[in-house]
Simulated scan of single mutants.
Amino acid sequence: MSEPTVLAIVLNYRTPELTIKATAAALREMQGINGEIIVVDNGSEDDSCALISAAIDRNGWGVDGRVSLAPSGRNGGFGAGNNFGIRQGLSNGKIPDFYYILNSDAWPERGAIRALLKVMQDDKRAGIVGSFIRGADGPPHQTAFRFPSIAGEFEGAVRTGVVSRLLKDSIVPMPIPSELTRVDWVAGASALLRRRMLEEIGLFDETFFLYFEETDLCRRAAQAGWHTLYAPASEVVHVGSVSTGMRTWARTPQYWFDSRRHYFVKNHGRAYAVGATVARIAGAALWRVRVALSSRALGDPPHFLRDLTIHALRGVFRRDVSKSAATLPQLTTKDVNNV
């Protein structure tokens, strides 16, 4: 069997300095691995391309196509940007065996990419493998999850110990595994994807602009019999939400609500999506009663419950646009190796 090939994709949106740092870290960890790195600029419309291109030239990263820059020409979101990178393939025109997706604000530690690759080689049904991710100041980030459900929406909103104990198997964020573990889905900040899986299930659903796209991909993978795993041996430092501005949201953006609704309608149907939203609204209302009677912090962006309710009511009169597997972006097969 020939040595597997890996195409690493670093997605940039107006974070050129972080992207250069992420690319340098990925390049270090790609040493000894047969593959390349492609930096996708996701329609930044700033000086990102000039700065990244200058860094590639200055550091000699472009020798033999080891690192390249590919402007997508538009900001279609996380899934669309990564799909663009996936479709570029290797510089020799071949399709790699694996794709490593890395956020611009994430930096793989020593052996991180190789640890993911080992999992893929050991488990031929592994389709997606995610890393253990920690903040720059040390604390681990939550990156292993169960699929969202009506029960999970209520538990996550009501934030009450007795409810969490009763619905423990529906809590979306899982306890962080200390060993290689099969999970429902992993965060896309650092993950390895098998090309054969993508050929079967399609690429990221580009209806999702941001959020829920990796949840949907992992769900389609599971339905097709592929495993999603969490590999704590692969450690990655992640600043978190720099390009999205999530940490400083003054209000939850429309695209978050759109992505959430699309996920539920697409995967469970319109009635289930309504049920999930009602459960979340009910849980959030009960939580606000507790907050009013105590000194607890609300913990939600301003106007979250009102915005969720208004979005849900508007959705009643909106036509659903849910992509089937047949209409999802596909990976063109050429020069395929069975890995």
Rank of each mutant, 00 (worst) to 15 (best):
F154M: 08
R318P: 00
N34Y: 12
G127I: 10
A282L: 15
A271L: 14
Y211R: 05
R58G: 13
E3F: 10
T252P: 15
I95K: 08
N103S: 14
T277D: 09
R14Y: 02
L166S: 07
S91I: 12
Y272W: 11
V278Q: 06
S68T: 12
V239C: 05
R58V: 04
S241M: 05
F78P: 01
A187H: 09
I310L: 13
V158E: 05
A187P: 01
W61H: 05
P71H: 14
R134Y: 15
A276D: 10
I56L: 03
R296A: 12
R280V: 06
G43Y: 08
R296F: 10
V119C: 06
N42V: 10
G135R: 15
G299H: 02
D41K: 13
I56A: 04
K168I: 00
T252H: 15
I150A: 07
Y211S: 07
T327E: 14
R125D: 06
T332N: 11
Y100V: 07
L18P: 07
P148I: 00
P329S: 08
K334G: 03
T332D: 15
L331M: 07
D137V: 00
V186S: 03
E155F: 00
A144C: 14
V289I: 12
G32D: 13
L51H: 10
V119H: 02
L331H: 00
E235N: 11
G76R: 11
L180Y: 12
D169N: 00
Q330H: 08
D300H: 09
G240V: 06
R159D: 10
T327S: 13
I171S: 05
V336K: 08
Q88N: 09
I281N: 02
I310E: 15
V158M: 05
I171N: 04
V158K: 04
P173A: 07
H238W: 11
G77V: 04
F78A: 05
V163I: 15
F145N: 10
F154R: 07
L286W: 07
R87W: 00
S131Y: 07
R146V: 11
A151I: 05
K168P: 00
M120Y: 04
W61C: 03
F257T: 01
P253G: 01
S295E: 11
T5F: 11
A157Q: 09
G202L: 06
L90I: 08
R66V: 11
H238M: 04
